[in-house]
Structures are given as structure tokens and as C-alpha cells.
Design a protein around this nucleic acid. Structure first.
Lengths: 204, 204
DNA sequence: TATATTAAGTGACACGGTGTCATAAGTCAA
DNA sequence: TTGACTTATGACACCGTGTCACTTAATATA
């Protein structure tokens, strides 16, 4: 989190700093963004930057939080408008993000955030179950093994998406176990609950 | 991908290099790992490293691929043993990873991979819908808005997991759209299919 | 107003990591 | 032995980071 000094700043200066940071993080992913560029854009000294933030990660995650807060408010609004239909609201947010990500220049920074490491790691995780995206052989190997009588797919095309879903959820459970230091029992129980939900379906 | 020079190396040297790299990536996340340490551990010159790899990322993702390949074989085996029961096999792999991640010292590197940026980004995404993990107020706000008659939860506790599932899948769809440069129509169609699957449930 | 105290701002600098390159050392075939 | 090619080396230029002694500004105190 930024220091109190940062929050004491005049609005104009604080905003200028954030804009500069956002521009730099839009230009390059976190690992390649440089503080030198941010301070140049914002017109402050290098030393000042370190008086506001612990480092570039600090600034980055603070910006991310600002975006998240905004989007969260939007989600709640949509949830209300949809009379509490969770999936409908989720749908709305997804749509909106797609539009924003493709149009709003200033969201390039969010793209960088999402794409940078996340993508490679999660991709590698998907490969675990499905093989490389376009290697037909690899995916067929899985298909051949699966008993389709046991899963609820109308078309073979749906099968791909079933795998995507299972992978996403499994991945998240792994990340959770690591980041929240859950015991193995807790992690297992959580995973079981979510798998049951997936099996029986989320909506009545 | 490593260069041909790297694959021409004597087995012992190649293995030593990979072990050194894995050790360094276990010590620190990608961004903080240093080539200096890898070459010191492996007993080769800095110049050599650059003759084998484009940079540390190259080495990192190659190691990740080796792990993934191994685990994939395991998944296929389990799928076979479970008579094609997808979810049962997924379960097995999840269990195994939990055990490995908590016991195998040399998998510290996988932990680093998963935790580093992925965790923060995806967490911020979850917050979008649920608010900060332990802020009860934030989560209640969502709960109050949701029409529980429309979703298939037996207990209020299950609700949390429904949200986790929806978030994981939505997040993955966003990442996909970005990384594969899907058109908005494609992305939307994919998302629709997966939401439908979630609604009706994955197993017969 | 003068003075003390606390907060904010600065940029030179030491440190460490990266990627390159000229050069040396092997390998092998003619 | 020579020449052609592949592999190995580490010094070096470059760049970004984080710090620190110091200056300047703001605010409180008398």
C-alpha cells in the first residue's frame, strides 16, 4: 500500500502520479516497467517515488485495486438490476470487460497484468490435462479415454469446454491451498464441495 | 526453447544445468532469480548460459514444461485406471499435487511459479465479485442481493464455493480472449457454452 | 515575527544484474 | 597440420534499483 505521505499529496499531484504509473504499466508488463519512466512522466524525483511507494509492485497493485473496486461496484449494480440472478450478472460483467478490454486504451495495463505470467502458468496447467492447444493428437488421447456416458455433454465440442471448466476450478483450488496455507484436509474438502457443485449443476 | 547446443550437451552437464536452474527458481520467484546464481551452481560461465537459453525465462518455462509433461502422463494413466471417469481422474491428480506440493522439496519451484503473480492477479479478480476474503460485510452485500431460489445450493456455505467456481471460469475466459485474440463473438460463445454447462451440471 | 520541529523533495551514487562480444579452446575431417 | 566449425569464457558496457545525506517547504510554538 502507498504511504500516508502519498495520500496527503495534493489531488492533482497524486492523480498525475497514478496516471504516469498507469501509462508505464500499459507500455510494459510489470517486470519490464521502470520507475525511471514513471517519475519522468510524473515530473517528480526518483527519491519521491520511494517516499510514496515501496517499489513498482506497490504502485502496480494499488492501481489494480482501484480498478477492481470500480468494477466491483458495477457488478453489484448489475446483480441488483438482474433481480439477484447471479449468472446473469456475471454475464453482464464478462460482456462489459470484453468491451472495455478491446476498446479502452487505458486498460492496456490490465491486459498486461492478466497476460504476463498468469497466462503462461495457467496455460501450462491446462496442457497438463489437454495437451498443447492445437495438437489434435494430444486432445484425442484424452477423448479416447473418457467415458462420455458419465458426463453431460450433447456434442463433442462441449467436451473441450468441460475440460476448461474442470481445469480452471482445479487450478484455483491448488492456488488457494498454497496461498492460504490450508491444511490438506481443508483443501480436499473445498475441492470436493466444488466438484459436487459442478456435477449437479449450479442452477435449479 | 533451449538451443540445439543445449541439447547436444553431455547428459551430465545438461542435467547439472537443469538442477541448478530448478534450485535457483525454487529459491526465488522468476523475477528475483538470477542467472549469476544458476551459472555458479552449475559451474559454467555466464556466456555459456546465453548460448543455451535466451534468458532466464527460457530456462524457467522449459523446466515448467518438463514438469507438465510428467504430470500429464500421470493424468492419462489415472484416467485409464478410473475407467474414463473424468472427474475421478481429476480428483486423483489434485490429490497427488497436494501431496507433492507439501512434501517434495524440489517442487518449491512450482510453488513459486504458481504463487508469484498469478495469485495476486486472480485474487484481485475474485475480490471483484466477493470482496476481500475476510471482510464479512462485503460478502454479505453480495449474498443479500442473490436470489437463492435460482441457484442450486443446499447450504449457505456452498454459496461461497459457487462464487469461486464462477469466478475461476470467468477469469479463464477473459484470459483466453486476450491470449488467443479471439473475436468478441467467439469469446462470448465460449463463455455462454461454459455457463450453460455449469448451470445444468457436468455429470449425468 | 522568529525559531523549532516535522514533513516532503531531491539527485548523486553504490550496488547488482543483464546481455554482448572479442577471444580462446576444443573437435573433427581432409 | 591446416582449416572450418562448434563450444566456452569472463571482462565490460549498460541500465535499473534502492538509499542516503542533504535541501526545501510547511507547520507548530513561543
Amino acid at each position: 500500500m502507498p504511504t500516508s505521505t502519498f495520500f496527503n499529496l495534493h489531488d492533482s499531484k497524486r492523480v498525475k502520479l497514478l496516471q504516469a504509473a498507469e501509462k508505464e504499466f500499459a507500455r510494459a508488463p510489470l517486470s519490464q516497467a521502470s520507475i525511471a519512466n514513471i517519475v519522468k512522466l510524473a515530473g517528480v524525483s526518483r527519491g519521491s517515488f520511494y517516499q510514496y511507494f515501496e517499489g513498482k509492485e506497490d504502485a502496480f497493485y494499488y492501481l489494480l485495486k482501484l480498478h477492481t473496486d470500480k468494477r466491483r461496484a458495477y457488478f453489484l449494480k448489475k446483480l441488483q438490476e438482474a433481480d439477484g440472478d447471479l449468472m446473469a450478472a456475471m454475464d453482464q460483467v464478462f460482456q462489459t470487460m470484453l468491451v472495455e478490454l478491446s476498446e479502452e486504451e487505458h486498460l492496456q495495463f490490465l491486459k498486461n497484468a492478466i497476460l504476463n505470467v498468469t497466462h503462461e502458468i495457467e496455460d501450462s496447467f491446462t496442457e497438463l490435462f489437454l495437451g498443447k492447444q492445437h495438437e489434435v493428437d494430444a486432445m484425442n488421447k484424452v477423448k479416447d479415454l473418457v467415458d462420455f456416458k458419465k458426463i453431460n455433454v450433447d456434442s463433442k465440442q462441449e467436451f473441450f469446454h468441460v475440460m476448461q471448466i474442470l481445469t480452471s476450478v482445479t487450478f484455483r483450488n491448488i492456488v488457494d491451498q498454497l496461498s492460504r496455507n490450508l491444511s490438506r484436509e481443508e483443501a480436499t474438502e473445498n475441492f470436493r464441495i466444488e466438484m459436487d457443485l459442478l456435477r449437479k449443476g449450479l442452477s435449479k
